[in-house]
Design a binder for these strands. Sequence first.
RNA 1: GGGCGAGUAGCUCAGUUGGUUAGAGCGCUUCCCUUACAAGGAAGAAGUCGUAGGUUCGAGUCCUAUCUCGCCCACCA
Length: 908
Amino acid sequence: MAESTLPKTYDFKATEERVYAWWEEQGFFRPSNDPRKPGFDEAKKPFVISIPPPNVTGELHLGHAMFVAMEDLMIRYNRMKGVPTLWVPGTDHAGIATQLKVEEDILRTEEVTRDELGRDDFLKRTWSWKDKYHGIISKQIRRLGASCDWSRERFTLDEGLSKAVREAFVRLYRKGLIYRGPRLINWSPRLRTAVSDLEVEYSEEEGQLYFFKYRIKDSSEFIPVATTRPETILGDTAVAVHPKDERYKKYIGATALVPILDREIPVIGDEYVDREFGTGALKITPGHDPNDYQIGARHKLPIISVLDQAAQIRAEGGPYAGMDRFEARKTLWADMQAAGLSIKTERYMQRVPRSQRGGEIVEPMISTQWFVTIKPLAEPALAAVDSGRIKIVPEHFTKVYRNWMENIQDWCISRQLWWGHRIPVWYAPDGSMFCAYDEEEARAEAKRTLGKEVELTQDPDVLDTWFSSGLWPFSTLGWPEQTEDLKYFYPTSVLETGYDILFFWVARMIMMGLEFTGELPFHTVYLHGLVRDEQGRKMSKTIGNVIDPLEVMDKYGTDALRFTLLVGSTPGQDVNLSLEKVAANRNFANKLWNAGRYVIGALAAAPKEKTGDLNWTLADAWVWARVKQLTASSNRLFENSQYGEAGRQIYEFFWNDFADWYIEIAKLQLAEGGDRAFKTADLLVRVLDLSLRLLHPFTPFVTEELWTRLKEAALDHSANINPEKNASWPEALIIARWPEPIAQEGWEDFNLRNFAILQNLVRAIRNLRAEKGIKPGQRIIAHLVSQECYNLLEQEKAALTALAQLDPAQLTISKTLKERPENTIPLVSGPVEVYFPLSGLTDPVEERARLERELKEASAQIQRLETLLATDFANKAPAAVVLKEQTRLQGFQSAASSLEEQLKAIGD
RNA sequence: GGGCGAGUAGCUCAGUUGGUUAGAGCGCUUCCCUUACAAGGAAGAAGUCGUAGGUUCGAGUCCUAUCUCGCCCACCA
């Protein structure tokens, strides 16, 4: 064997950067069929993914690693199949998140607020922040091996996408699907902006339930009422009771007095009130509670806003004006206690609405905002999934999607932020508004409508980030322009992302895609699970269990991280990432490396040409049958989006079959020299090559590196390495390039079965050696007896002696046992009996026990199988399944009878 | 309140048209630095697949009920 110059340990650090640069340099990430290039063929159907654009707020986390691994796998798989493939990269401006970060940053470093800085300056700072973090994140995405076409990279606030956003807004507006008006919305006092329902998260927190008296005017009577937010009492405009409530119905129509303020409000009857809960009477604050808002609307109650944008009490709150909401709560309650209006407080678990971004408690407030009328968009989007035109993987998310779509509410799209797409609406001094693509157009329209030139001011608000995200699959391809890219690459193929943004993003893309392009933006939605820590907890800075993917890659390599994420998960199911698993997969990469190293060395040492044609050995045929089986099942699994299972099977084949068995036998075959060595080297190369191809979508770096080296090694050799530049997927390759040299029907099964017999025999002998404490290097004498497998054993003598460490000089193989040798240890492995003349090691008592144990096991199996075969199983199960069981039964029967004989022979 | 998912070896998890004796990694026991790999090799121990029924020749896999945990949606003051 030639000395290999490659290091014993795979150096992923040295490989990754170089290989990625090489890919980019070669243009591997560009679509093979590109409308921008000569020779474009529009008939070829492409495979397209739009990246879920990472926010420009921060750095890489495992969620990014997950989607890059998944999408890169899909992209590479399709690219290898020869499909023109495009993966569009890009980043998201992430309105609230980014603005918050920048605000914090300037406050910390320059001690100025955004208001002090002013809108223009603030935006300047934000753009430079964006430039910095965009650079970081896109470098990190590359580090993960993402094979996206960087020449087509987009940003949600770039010129083209901003144009798309304006176009979308104007179209919806003109269609009457966008309206503006005062509504009860979720208000984030710290960010001082509206947020959508989806951006509110509820947390279980212990609070107090305050019981107090609602006095009836001109009476000493009162209605007891409970609330969790006493400060909202200041905005009450009614007290509601159930119309059939015997306790309170007499008060309906009466006038109640708001505590402390003594404002007069009506007592009303409404079925919404739950008689069982609290006191059975409800205070109504239409200005600060969604349910009260609806009740208020039913009863035409006035709406009082008691909180301002910073959640401080407004003038309507009388003596409490100017107080913070929580301060007002305390003060008001104390005053009520003093006035004898309080009854009691109880500890109470409630769900507190908090802002997804800022984390502070959001307040329902009346505010003038922009909304999208969503029903007309949601209906076709729901139908698309229901009819199966869009397939969601895993399927059960279809129900989740439907559930949400059926109950969808109008979407509040305006945000009182600076960082984002400004709403394309201008106001005239008289208040009339003009929605247009730009100011010029708005001015013209204003002139037409108002009959004169007027000064216009643009709406100060920006759009919800998700509004632009909803356009992503087509805006990134040039929409609203009918670009070549849009025509060819749209609709995209698969949308891959985490299930946590199914509503935020996926649903909106489907709605907007249908609305604006008339087509579904993709045909498949693949939802991956969330990456959690080892114990299944969400990663969070406060728990301190955040795993940094960069550190993981530094320590174990990108391939190991990717393989762990891909193989450790199943669609839609959260994956608990443990570093131990990553380490195990780093070991796998190293295993690949060393197997590759061995094969390359073997190739170098083997003859360069063959002199004639040789038959395949059992091991050759077996490994080839296995690799074919593996290719077929990988194909099937890839087509069904079961990538994890495919990865597992490839891993097992490579390690347990190829490395542990075939390479070991190949060593013997190579040692024979001549054509046998030529052929073995050839097959080693082929199987390694195919394995690398199957693994490439999972672990692109190590496979690319090995493949390159393998090609180099094969240059002066007539072995069959594919000389094409790009690695293609094995499915077609096996058939086209490497036709099978074995012509007989059923050769795969035949060889798989025979090899299994050989493996079992070797294992049984090794087991016996271990039990008897025979030294690993010590060759032992064995007599093999088998009627059925005589030829097989004879033929595989060499492999057998080497693998089981038998003494070749004293090995005998016979069809029948003429005379049982003295002082032997017998062993039965399926159809083969083995006798070891190891008199020094025989202990008749021990032997008897062992044989009896084996016989007992065999008898149990015979019993089980006989029973099974006596049932309807024999008639109803498929013939192949029945045959299998019958064969097994025969095996156990022959084993049992020879065990019995041996027991007899051993005597007492 | 509605919906969804999970419960398989000590731990973390695979297991998709129902079909051998249910698998992997880590951990554990014994042996081995054998010329691809000690990030390795060989042998081994370890599970009544949450529980109870049902369908079927056959159920971890399908159906029903039930328990436990988790998530999402709706938000009863």
